[in-house]
Design a protein around this nucleic acid. Structure first.
Length: 370
DNA sequence: AAATTAGGCAACCGCGAATTC
DNA sequence: CGAATTCGCGGTTGCCTAATT
């Protein structure tokens, strides 16, 4: 294995950097800029290869690095971005001011991945099914990449809103409860919510563009049978639900019978809405269990949302009132509202074009048993 | 107290893309 | 246009330290 061309000519030091070396590099780059990295070590008086200098500067010596523990909000954001972008750490890091790709990658591999693993119901994962498209598991598996957060659920026709996936919300909860994560005194939960999410929580969306995730227990609205009866066509998987919905804690198939979404291979005729980030944070603010199976625990939030946006027959909600056109823009909205944020991501929108279809039932199937 | 294991993280490696010659 | 060089990225390694045995 050859070394980089700039490293071949002379003996170069490797391994950890000494404070003296750091000082030389800092002095040189802050004075002259790095220019061509391959010439930096010679000009800065360092026995390193240019590549090593570049890495040291980018990952450690740059003055605009934040360093320190990741906040729960950053962690949740990383999970959400990872669900969209996969292992494109550099792209993810661009959305986290002061964080490097290496830092984000290390954080993911050492911390987030384990937390997610503990949150994921492995048997349910094994039966991944793209319920929205009624793909058989083996076909649905085409949409699943190990490099992608398996808890994400993005539907091609439902990218007009950003929702925090169940895993991300669980993770946010997990980090929030972790005493190692000390909230920024100027940025505690209440301030954070009020500052970044001044708009009211959204009600569940009752149109055919609603997010659809059978693993999400928060808003289990199921179409009444007479609505389902109008959608016998198997291709019409997500009926254009009228606002005549009933609350229930079960999914039903076209015959009206309760189904286990982890086993059901046919077209699901009910939708559930996934709360958006602001809703989840609102829930967090209220100390609500975010992914609890028990509907009793969730009722207060449901009624809270319902009181804000009464779900009445004939009413509908405009997406335009509250949300950015798609997930990445919403992420950017969050970021640009964050203090010290200077991110921009016009190019990130293209990441959505690949369309990742993934579902991850994170709940034990027992909660769906009739 | 010593040895072993695990976790976190800085740094390295190799490859592909972009740029320069 | 093609070769050489440089840059940037993701995957991986290996060191250091803390926790555990």
């Amino acid at each position: 294995m050859g070394h980089h061309s700039c490293c071949n000519k002379q003996k170069v030091k490797r391994g950890l950097w000494s404070p003296e070396e750091d000082e030389k590099l800092i002095n040189y780059v802050t004075t002259y800029g790095h220019g061509c990295w391959s010439s930096v070590p010679r000009l800065a008086g360092l026995q390193r290869c240019g590549k090593s200098c570049r890495l040291r500067w980018i990952n450690y010596l740059r003055p605009d690095l934040k360093r320190g523990t990741f906040s729960p909000q950053e962690a949740a954001l990383i999970v959400e971005l990872h669900s969209i972008l996969g292992n494109r750490w550099a792209q993810i890091a661009k959305h986290l001011p002061g964080r490097t790709d290496n830092e984000v990658k290390n954080f993911w591999n050492s911390s987030i991945k384990k937390r997610l693993a503990s949150l994921v119901d492995v048997p349910a994962l094994a039966s991944l099914v793209d319920v929205h498209n009624s793909k058989p598991p083996e076909e649905a598996a085409d949409f699943v990449s190990l490099n992608v957060n398996p808890n994400s659920f993005i539907l091609s026709d439902q990218r007009d809103q950003l929702y925090l996936s169940p895993s991300a919300s669980s993770l946010l909860q997990s980090f929030s409860q972790d005493t190692d994560f000390k909230p920024n005194p100027s940025n505690d939960n209440v301030d954070f919510i009020q500052h970044h999410f001044p708009f009211a929580p959204m009600p569940p969306t009752l149109s055919n563009t609603a997010s659809f995730d059978p693993s999400w227990p928060l808003m289990p609205f199921v179409a009444p049978k007479h609505v389902l009866d109008h959608h016998q066509d198997e291709k019409d998987h997500v009926p254009n639900l009228s606002n005549e919905v009933v609350q229930d804690d079960k999914l039903v198939n076209p015959t009206g019978a309760a189904v286990n979404p982890y086993e059901y291979g046919g077209p699901l005729m009910a939708t559930q809405t996934v709360p958006k980030l602001c809703e989840i944070l609102q829930g967090n603010l209220c100390n609500m269990p975010l992914t609890s199976v028990s509907l009793e625990n969730l009722d207060p939030l449901v009624s809270r949302l319902s009181s804000c946006f009464p779900i009445t027959s004939g009413s509908s909600y405009s997406h335009d009132m509250h949300v950015a056109p798609n997930r990445m823009e919403f992420v950017d909205t969050i970021l640009t509202s964050m203090p010290l944020s200077s991110s921009s991501s016009s190019s990130s929108l293209s990441a959505l074009s690949s369309g990742q279809y993934i579902t991850n039932p994170t709940l034990p199937s027992s909660c769906w048993d009739p």
